[in-house]
Amino acid sequence: MEALQDPDKTASEQLAAVLRDRLAEEYGTGTEIVALVRLSGGASRETWSFDAVMPDGTRRPLILKRDPMDRQVDKQFEGVPGGRLAVDRWTEGRLLQLAGEAGAPVPTVPFFLAKDRRTTQGFFSHRMEGEALGRRILREDAYAVARPKLAFQVGHAAARFHGIARDLLPPMRGLPAAGELQHYRTIMDSFHQPHAGFEYGFRWLQERLELAGERYTLNHGDFRNGNILVNGDGLCGVLDWESAHLGNPNSDLGWMCVRSWRYGYHDKVVGGFGDVSELLDGYEAGGGGRIDPAEIYFWQVFGTLRWGILCMILGFTHIDGEQRSIEYAAIGRRAAETEYDLLQLLE
């Protein structure tokens, strides 16, 4: 049988040429690119791992995250100018730098990649050792010591990056709580698929908007088990900042409590590894102040509903043809799980 052409192989040869030129500017002519592989996960962005070997033999383990080469346009929705709240790759890289300076554990971002005719926009980070797969973090013996610390540590980390002064942040989109609620409702309406369960969630949240809290800061936007890097000692990195925006910081804390990232370990509300009290203790220790658990409950409900709408977005990204994908089609049906979770939360 004739071997199938591996699309990633061709892509990786082209990328290797781009990287040799770019890394020569940083580490000197003759810098070699070795062990270049595309990491799985994240259909919406490309993440590549490689080592840069400098002329003197020094090895630098690096990660490149860039926009996909084959799809440049993010999904748009009727009545939602600009589409989803998100940032470009340079802003994402800059936010990692700022979060690191603020004392949150994040990979170091040494330099960026400019868009030209050969590549999309991206940024580089130093590759860290650790586990990012949520299921493994919760299950494997190697993280038995780390797990009990994680809820406190993610709270602490969030307090550090929520505390970044607004005037230091790059230009970003954002919405206060009521606006963000309306943002997701408008996206849901754009699909013209009535959804009574989600309507009830919106109604419930709207009646309790005073629980949202008043603060308005940098939000990570996808702060969950699955986007954190963990080693044997505990949290070592907060990853994937592409959904960052300005908003109510409790949103990040509530998102960490959504059932979908507990991977079955439902007795541990925070990421499947801890309790809300530990999360809030860590947040206070990190300088974020004392947060009322009722606010976290509000944002946990909001997060569950938001994840449902995000599942619908991916489902309709397939249905509407922006990206035909069995994976997106299947995720569209995961909205049923969030609807179930939402209605369980609203006892």
Binding site: A196, G197, Y200, R333, R334, A336, E337, E339, Y340, L343, Q344
Partner: peptide, 13 residues
């Protein structure tokens, strides 16, 4: 709503 959601899950997952 709960019964409907439970039925959806029984089919989807």
């Amino acid at each position: 709503l709960r019964q409907t959601a439970q039925d959806k899950i029984a089919l989807a997952n």
